[in-house]
């Protein structure tokens, strides 16, 4: 029983991080109908920038975070303008492949700039595990969870109540009407990519804090695909719920099935993914606009 509870609690903690990264996918998909396969690389770049600033500038973590987010914002704008804008209206495969190409470029550049060495974050936050009585959350996971939840809440609030967020939602529901109301679709597209890059960067910093950084960190981005599909590609609430479900499921699979089949934890979400796609491809909360053939 204790093990079960412990697994569920760490599942929830990991799920928070997944929810944050999934938000990066959903923000872009909702606005531009693109799945960004480079989300994982956005995380990796964000984490590296944060780490570099921390080690060289020696300023408080809060400032570093602001600088990192500013960098991510600019990166989002530039990438949208240079790479994604020319491909608007092209077939799905082109758009998928261009984000995959982008991920390859970012991975290579990170490898050249920061080398392939494994790095870990300095202890910026007090390290004390969280004792819930029935289960213990390790320090890194605890901070990860807290950051992820703050990030998720902020982005959800922006999306729900701010002027920009409302413009983004209007654009998502009908581009032509939104444009006739004076909302610039181009600006919204750029903003979506920027926000997604920011969300991914926070996710990257959190994951980097938990498990260290290396150029292959972006792999985590693909591991979040089941979360996005389970929750529904265009639903922010879905990304959050999906994150927790997959987090718990992954930990349960890790706890109970891994001893029999080593490494099963990694594929369990993908097995779930295949079933969701067969039964309910639009996910738990997604819009049912999938064309059946």
């Amino acid at each position: 029983m204790d093990i079960l509870l412990q697994l569920i609690v760490s599942g929830i903690a990991v799920g928070g991080v997944y929810a944050l990264i999934a938000l990066g996918f959903v923000l872009i998909y909702k606005a531009t109908s693109v799945i960004n396969f480079a989300t994982g690389e956005f995380m990796m770049v964000g984490a590296y920038v944060c780490l570099t600033l921390l080690t060289y500038l020696k300023i408080p973590f809060a400032f570093v975070l602001v600088f990192t987010l500013a960098f991510a914002f600019m990166m989002g704008v530039i990438i949208e303008r240079l790479i994604l804008r020319p491909l608007i209206g092209e077939p799905v495969i082109s758009v998928i492949m261009v984000t995959i190409g982008l991920s390859s470029i970012l991975k290579g550049l990170a490898h050249i700039i920061w080398t392939a060495d494994f790095r870990s974050f300095p202890d910026i936050l007090p390290a004390e595990p969280w004792d819930l009585g029935f289960a213990i959350v390790p320090s890194a996971l605890k901070w990860g969870f807290i950051f992820a939840i703050i990030g998720v809440v902020i982005f959800t609030l922006i999306f729900k109540y701010s002027r920009v967020g409302i413009a983004m939602r209007a654009n998502a529901s009908d581009q032509q009407v939104a444009q006739s109301m004076g909302i610039s679709t181009k600006v919204i597209f750029a903003l979506s990519w920027s926000f997604a890059a920011c969300a991914a960067s926070i996710g990257g910093i959190v994951v980097g804090n938990i498990s260290g950084i290396h150029p292959q960190l972006g792999h985590v981005g693909l591991m979040v695909l089941p979360v996005v599909i389970l929750g529904g590609l265009d639903s922010i609430g879905g990304a959050i719920v999906g994150g927790f479900i997959i987090g718990i499921l992954e930990n349960l699979a890790g706890g109970y099935i891994d001893p029999i089949l080593p490494g099963f934890k990694e594929v369990a979400p993908f097995i779930v993914l295949v079933f969701i796609l067969m039964i309910r491809p639009y996910g738990l909360f997604g819009k049912k606009i999938i064309e059946r053939v």
Partner: peptide
């Protein structure tokens, strides 16, 4: 070499698609 290969590989995909 290894990272440069990755960059060129990605750049080729992006370049051809655009």
């Amino acid at each position: 070499f290894a990272p440069l290969r990755e960059v060129v590989f990605g750049a080729l995909i992006v370049f051809f698609l655009i």
